[in-house]
Design a protein around this nucleic acid. Structure first.
Length: 290
DNA sequence: AGTATAGAGCGTCACAACCA
DNA sequence: TGGTTGTGACGCTCTATACT
């Protein structure tokens, strides 16, 4: 059932989850409740079981009216979704104006998604076809788009980074609106070692780096072919590492969220135990005075 | 309005661990 | 032993916010 919040005992954590529960843990005291607005969700957390609220990836919003409480009294309990899709749990007062703030959040997110990062100079160069851009021969921006063999399509170049030729051997990357993002200049000069020195200049940072050039039609001894193969391998390695880094960061964030959830659970449990101790003390004092 | 700063995200590099 | 993968570290860019 889509969006159903189901009680799940000890199977809620993926293998290797650092927050995995120990099956021998039997502490439990308090039960929780049902969700009045969601008839299909009842008794989601039961006593004497490790408490995990687990949902499929496409969780539906769960709305609690004021006064309802999710009380997790089992040590190490967490509230989680399917692996890789941890959602933020936001508890707002039902019927209050705060619930409308979700629109602002989504609008902010949409705005952030629209705004794209400015690619690095190396990425720009790779997108442009690397060293295959002939020095002094670039006559129009469409020249760069003819590199059909490139694994990275030039279509990925944001429209605001379209190129224009100013002088032979020089490529200027002008932002849309001319001066919104500043002007970046790539100047390529010949190098005696079969490559090109690329000088780049932009706001606040100038420098240069070497780009090997593969001549069209091959060369003597297959050297350019090897260079092309190495460049391709490097590109593949970078691409894989890029994705690996992305995945690694996603896992790290997920792990941190798990830790934060665990802190919240433990704090709630601590508070509940303190309250219980307090009430037991009062009861004891009453009985003693009688 | 302009500037400084913090925080977040990203790409890349280096390195260790793992595997065939 | 060479290739692959995961992750920490570093630098860069961008955005939001505070301050002047």
């Amino acid at each position: 059932m889509d969006g159903m919040v189901e009680e799940n005992g000890t199977t809620g954590n993926p293998p290797g989850d650092p927050l995995a529960h120990s099956p021998g843990d039997t502490n439990s005291s308090v039960v929780v409740t049902s969700f009045p607005l969601l008839p299909q969700v009842q008794s989601v957390i039961q006593p004497n079981q490790q408490s995990v609220i687990q949902t499929p990836a496409n969780i539906q919003p769960v709305q609690l009216q004021k006064g309802n409480v999710i009380l997790v009294s089992k040590p190490n309990s967490v509230i989680q979704t399917t692996p890789g899709s941890l959602q933020t749990l936001q508890v707002v007062e039902a019927g209050s104006d705060d619930s409308l703030s979700n629109d602002d959040e989504s609008a902010k997110k949409t705005r952030r998604d629209i705004l794209t990062r400015r690619p690095s100079y190396r990425k720009i160069l790779n997108d442009l076809g690397g060293g295959e851009i002939a020095v002094g021969r670039v006559e129009s921006s469409s020249e760069c788009d003819t590199n059909e063999d490139s694994e990275l399509s030039t279509n990925s170049i944001p429209s605001q980074y379209q190129t224009q030729t100013v002088i032979p051997g020089t490529i200027q990357l002008a932002s849309q609106g001319e001066t919104v993002q500043g002007l970046h200049t790539l100047t390529m000069t010949n190098a005696s070692t079969g490559g090109a020195i690329v000088h780049y200049a932009s706001q606040g940072q100038d420098g240069q780096f070497f780009v090997p050039v593969v001549t069209q039609g091959g060369g003597i001894g297959g050297g350019p072919i090897i260079a092309e193969d190495q460049a391709r391998k490097r590109e593949m390695r970078l691409l894989k590492n890029r994705e690996a880094a992305r995945e690694c960061r996603r896992k790290k964030k997920e792990y941190i969220k798990c830790l934060e959830n665990r802190v919240a659970v433990l704090e709630n449990q601590n508070k509940a135990l303190i309250d219980e101790l307090k009430s037991l003390k009062e009861l004891y004092c009453q009985q003693k005075s009688e």
